[in-house]
Design a protein around this nucleic acid. Structure first.
Lengths: 259, 259
DNA sequence: AGCCGCTTCCCATCATGTGGGAACGAGCGT
DNA sequence: ACGCTCGTTCCCACATGATGGGAAGCGGCT
């Protein structure tokens, strides 16, 4: 009842929370981390980090290099990841994305929101940047995920400070709110050099029945390819693909059925 | 007081262990589980299961259906899974497996060991049975993973009771030990109708420098296709593929370099 | 209505995880 | 070879944080 937005671990978990934080550590840092690396990253006592790592190790969520005694993500993570990947039907998305990429000559990426990041989970190129984390405020993918955010998703205030990547990056919360309003009314997000120069991205949502974005679909290319005049053409292709993905990725009960 | 379902957990973790068990619950049972479903499956008090689920939810390892309040695997699992999948280089395996499948006319699967199961993580067919769990004692994949098991891997005694799937399934631990000895000496495993009738599977290991099986590679077809006379031919193809996978999947430092 | 099963929160209890410390081994620069 | 430092790993008394019974509040059945 009370708070619709749960801030942080107010109730009932500390060991678990920390253990999951341990797993998240393997994202940015190299593939192998020592126990004391983990302790440092999470500002935990070595003893505690070590114990958590051992538990995760026993459960198969981590595995240990035999020589260096360092840890890496274990088979259970791979296993569960494959499972959820298929449960979400993401393996069905790749062909659609490849098709979109081929038709438009741009790269096509599909992302979902995970905490404060947009995470690319499928791509149309030969070597898609799958697994890549992108900020929410400075990418078209992120703007879409924010604009049609799920109620649970922290509503903009609880975002980390907006970092500037180029001189175009939106760093003012108020400006971001206005931009999200524009995204909603125009039904697409544009990123024109806000995360890197010379890259223009269009993104549209894959919506569920409740009108929330389950995924964001992006088309990315140089400004020379995605000119202002061609924007509508690209959007048209992207939206068609997004509608197809709604059918492929969402269970029947969660699809919107208008039109 | 010794946990009812946890044979291990000797040192320093109970909440964490249970939380991870919660995640594993989503394997066999349908994609959506309610909090009390979890409690039942793990024989935990509802209150506790609920708290664990909430924590996992907050960390993004679970997500909750808005209408039914049931849980499913969350974005963080997908994200970390993709990450470990790529860190292991498994996306490089699919083309090799497809090639092997095409050359032999059989299905080709790659599995790794996760706890008491062999888990298929990549396949050569159009719709590979990725994510499928197979028992260790009644499949060619499992026998390979056991025969060249890692030291950490429980050595046969700590396996759950050997269940019979057909009249050919090996259920005696002693018989299994003898079979594993044979597998090691012949350098391949055969499953001839031990998990299902009318299916014959050959499996070979993908070995690391220490001589342990990191993965198992299986070629599966009907006994009419894989006849006794052709076994060597199939094995030859499979072993060539396994060697290629050693190069693709293992970091240079962990590859064996003999020959 | 009446019943049942579910989710969710509260709270006293004490089992559990916590973290300081110590033992041990490996690598390294002098 | 040496002593140094930084790594992992185990032990153990303490109090903190997880535990689970219970009750309140929904919603769907028959």
């Amino acid at each position: 009842m009370t708070a619709p937005t749960a801030p942080r671990t107010p109730g009932g978990a500390q060991a678990v929370q920390r253990a999951l934080d341990v797993l998240h550590c393997f994202h940015d840092n190299g593939p192998d981390l020592s126990a004391s690396d983990l302790a440092r990253r999470l500002t935990l006592p070595v003893s505690t980090a070590h114990r958590l790592a051992r538990t995760l190790l026993g459960a198969g969520f981590l595995e240990q290099d035999f020589r260096t005694a360092r840890y890496r993500l274990g088979p259970a993570v791979t296993e569960l990841g494959r499972l959820s990947y298929h449960q979400r039907g993401l393996h069905l998305a790749a062909p659609e994305l490849a098709d979109l990429a081929e038709r438009t000559g741009a790269t096509a990426d599909l992302a979902l929101r995970s905490g404060p990041h947009a995470v690319i989970v499928a791509g149309g190129s030969v070597t898609p940047k799958v697994g890549l984390r992108r900020p929410l405020h400075s990418t078209a993918l992120g703007k879409v995920l924010l604009a049609w955010g799920r109620p649970g998703g922290s509503d903009l205030d609880s975002l980390p400070p907006l970092r500037a990547f180029t001189d175009r990056t939106i760093v003012e919360p108020a400006a971001l709110a206005a931009e999200l309003e524009r995204v909603r009314s125009e039904a697409y997000a544009l990123n024109d050099g806000e995360s890197a120069h010379g890259v223009r991205t269009l993104a549209v949502p894959v919506l569920d029945r409740a009108g929330h974005a389950r995924f964001a679909l992006a088309v990315r290319a140089t400004p020379e390819l995605i000119t202002d005049g061609r924007t509508e053409w690209f959007l048209d292709r992207a939206r068609t693909c997004a509608r197809a993905l709604e059918v492929l990725l969402l269970p029947p009960g969660e699809r919107r059925q208008d039109q």
